[in-house]
Design a binder for these strands. Structure first.
Length: 415
DNA sequence: TCTGGGGTCCTGGGACTT
DNA sequence: TCTGAAGTCCCAGGACCC
């Protein structure tokens, strides 16, 4: 299999090119921007209908700076200019404000990203139909069967894709070309933004082995730290270890996978279709809330989350039978509880009732930072198998249970 | 000091069935 | 009837991804 990995730069404000910009924070909407723009530049005739096209005209000095930012929230993404200051994804906005106060702070605008994401992907599938969705701005492409796909090792096709995307959207795109998905993803990082990198099997030792282990998609901060503890810093160091040693130290599955990854082996196909496994909604509060003292507020949020998940399920045509909750306490510790039903549902009231039962099984004496509701074990609506397995039933409807911490509480989820 | 939201997958333990 | 092994399901937590 020959794979492309293409990632698309979704931030498109030509007037901000080369400037430090961070996206994140969440709660503000571009609607706020619109009203401020109207006030500041009334001659601009800003309107919601044409807002997206007008964004290019917003003067640079209008964009808000991050300086003095207070409050919660993390960075979703940042421009290369902002990264020069040590800013990166998932960093707290307050910390970013200290590192680079002059950076421009933009709110996340998922509607806008979705619009460009759809265009980006439809252009690719028009050219190379075997495409796997990897998120809003990334895809894998199997180009083995694309006519002319092999010309110049894939470079001709990659250039065609880049040009088509730029002509239609003005967006740039980085492409990695390699024998499989694992290497294609790493290759796409070599030449950002708007680059094309081709890595052949024979290039493994010269191009891949010198890279840090963290560059492997699937090695996160924890695994990286552990590897470093063993003196394994590069992919080459990893490849030098015996499979049995990796299995002994990282487990049968992950150890074996690390070994394969280090040797550039990956036989996963490009999957053009996939079904969701779960859907969830969660929210982090502006301030930590208490189950008793903030009972009303928590109750309202809890109901809203259940309604949102139910609406998501119904809109997308799914039902689920595992309902769960997630809490994050003020010390950042997260707990989850879930419960499986004997039948499938997408009903907000039912979800709330079962999620409420789950809440009774956690410690609610501590302040809560985040609350989430999840529905898993999804099937397409109307295709659910008939319920009735006795074992599932027994597990799904356990006898009444006192909360794990044995407290008597006045709870916000009481029906 | 700070750490979002929406996902997937894996692991390990307990309960249960065969 | 009891016991143990193996397999399955559920559940909780954690790592990782974009």
């Amino acid at each position: 299999m020959d794979a492309f990995y293409a990632s698309c730069e979704l931030l498109r404000y030509p007037q901000l090119k080369g400037l430090p910009v961070v996206i994140g924070g969440g709660r503000r909407k571009e609607d706020d921007l619109l009203s401020k723009l109207q006030a500041a530049y009334p001659e601009g005739e800003w309107s919601e209908d044409t807002f997206a096209e007008q964004l290019d005209r917003i003067p640079v000095d209008f964009f808000p700076r991050i300086e003095g930012y207070t409050g919660r929230g993390v960075i979703t993404t940042a421009t290369y200019a902002a990264r020069q200051f040590g800013i990166g994804s998932a960093m707290g906005l307050m910390k970013a404000a200290k590192l680079c106060p002059q950076a421009i702070l933009l709110p996340v605008d998922f509607d806008r990203y979705r619009h460009y994401s759809r265009t980006f992907k439809s252009i690719i599938t028009d050219i190379a139909p075997v495409m796997q969705d990897r998120g809003v701005d990334e895809v894998y492409i199997d180009f083995a069967e694309v006519p002319g796909g092999q010309r110049e090792g894939g470079r001709v096709l990659a250039r065609l894709i880049q040009k088509s995307i730029f002509d239609a959207t003005g967006l740039t795109c980085s492409i990695g070309v390699a024998p499989n998905k694992l290497i294609a993803k790493m290759a796409s990082e070599f030449n950002k933004p708007n680059g094309i990198s081709i890595v052949l099997e024979a290039d493994l030792q010269t191009l891949i082995w010198p890279l840090a282990c963290r560059k492997i998609n699937g090695v996160g901060p924890k695994a990286d730290e552990k590897l470093k503890g063993f003196g394994i810093h590069t992919i080459g160091d990893l490849a030098a270890r015996e499979l049995s040693w990796l299995v002994d130290n990282f487990g049968k599955s992950y150890g074996a996978w690390l070994h394969e990854a280090a040797w550039g082996r990956d036989d996963r196909p490009v999957e053009t279709e996939s079904e969701p496994v779960s859907m969830s909604r969660e929210t982090t509060f502006e301030r930590d809330l208490h189950a008793v003292r903030d009972r009303e507020e928590l109750g309202a949020v809890f109901t809203r989350l259940c309604e949102q998940v139910a609406a998501d399920l119904q809109r997308k045509g799914y039902e689920g039978k595992t309902i769960g909750i997630k809490l994050r306490y003020d010390n950042f510790q997260a707990v989850t509880r879930d419960q499986s039903l004997s039948d499938y549902t997408a009903d907000a009231k039912r979800i709330r009732q079962v999620a409420g039962q789950c809440l009774k099984r956690v410690d609610l004496s501590r302040r809560i930072r985040l609350l989430g509701v999840r529905v898993g074990s999804l099937v397409k609506a109307g295709t659910a198998p008939t319920p009735g397995a006795s074992y599932s039933e027994a597990i799904a409807n356990p006898p009444p249970q006192v909360n794990d911490h044995g407290q008597t509480q006045l709870l916000f989820f009481d029906e």
